[in-house]
């Protein structure tokens, strides 16, 4: 008997966003705090989260703004940092299959962050069917957590979690835990070389270059490994 694929409604997408929301909120809170400390107003901090919605580049934006970098130089640096997002759409749609609708991709793909991409891919790997409603649920949950976390952080200031160091530490480990769980959810024997090469190259390039370069190089090296491995297998 064939098992039916799990439903892919807006609400199941929202439920799938829960670990992302738990991970995003404290990081966005930290961003809000850091933004105000760097001299931005709460409105400016919220504006960066609402408009850019890309965590690592937002933190770098604070350093560039605080350091007085020219707008175009700062923009170019931040745009280069987000180039990895170019790979997510095609990888997701390839996994979703040729029948996948993308009529509203102009809107839901705005929320295709690292974590949303990983969660969507993991869900598809576990047998869930792709749907735009599911992507909206996943994306809106994550976006709401990011923006609300930023706003609260900007208004609360730096001392909000000082009395709760254990909670602060636990929340700080939420994103690594999420990435590891997502990795386990899509893990297969065939992907082990891809994962090993991606991890090794990320470490190496981060240590000798920078974190941004490390992420880009790790992703590309892993993807190329997957491509070459099957060529080798076929020979």
């Amino acid at each position: 008997m064939k098992t039916a694929a799990p439903s892919s409604t807006f609400l199941t997408g929202l439920a799938g966003a829960l670990p992302i929301m738990l991970g995003y909120f404290p990081i966005a809170f930290s961003f809000g705090v850091a933004a105000v400390r760097a001299g931005l107003s709460p409105t400016e901090a919220a504006g960066l989260s609402v408009i850019i919605y890309a965590g690592a580049s937002q933190f770098l934006a604070l350093a560039l703004i605080a350091g007085g970098a020219p707008v175009l130089v700062a923009a170019f640096t931040l745009i280069a940092m987000n180039l990895r997002h170019l790979l997510y759409g095609p990888a997701l749609m390839k996994r979703a299959g040729p029948a996948a609708r993308k009529r509203w991709a102009l809107f839901w793909a705005f929320g295709l962050t690292d974590e949303v991409f990983g969660a969507a891919l993991g869900a598809l790997a576990r047998g869930r069917q792709f749907s735009e409603s599911y992507m909206f649920g996943l994306g809106i949950g994550a976006y709401a957590a990011w923006v609300s976390g930023t706003v609260l952080g900007a208004y609360a200031g730096g001392g909000a979690l000082e009395g709760w160091p254990v909670l602060e530490a636990a929340l700080g480990f939420m994103l690594p835990a999420l990435f590891l769980a997502l990795l386990l959810s899509i893990m297969s024997r065939a992907q082990v070389p891809v994962i090993a090469v991606a991890a090794a190259v990320t470490v190496l390039v981060t240590l000798i270059g920078s974190g941004t370069l490390g992420i880009l190089a790790g992703m590309l090296a892993g993807a190329v490994t997957g491509m070459l491995r099957r060529i080798t297998d076929a020979q």
């Binding site: 994103l175 991606a198 991890a199 892993g222």
Partner: peptide, 28 residues
């Protein structure tokens, strides 16, 4: 895209590579 073509294989490996990379970057 042919299912076994170079670009298809590259895209199929992109997801696991991206998640592995982001995990490593987050624990570094």
């Amino acid at each position: 895209l042919a299912p076994t073509g170079i670009l298809a294989r590259f895209l199929a490996a992109t997801g696991p590579a991206a998640i592995a990379t982001l995990f490593v970057a987050s624990v570094m």
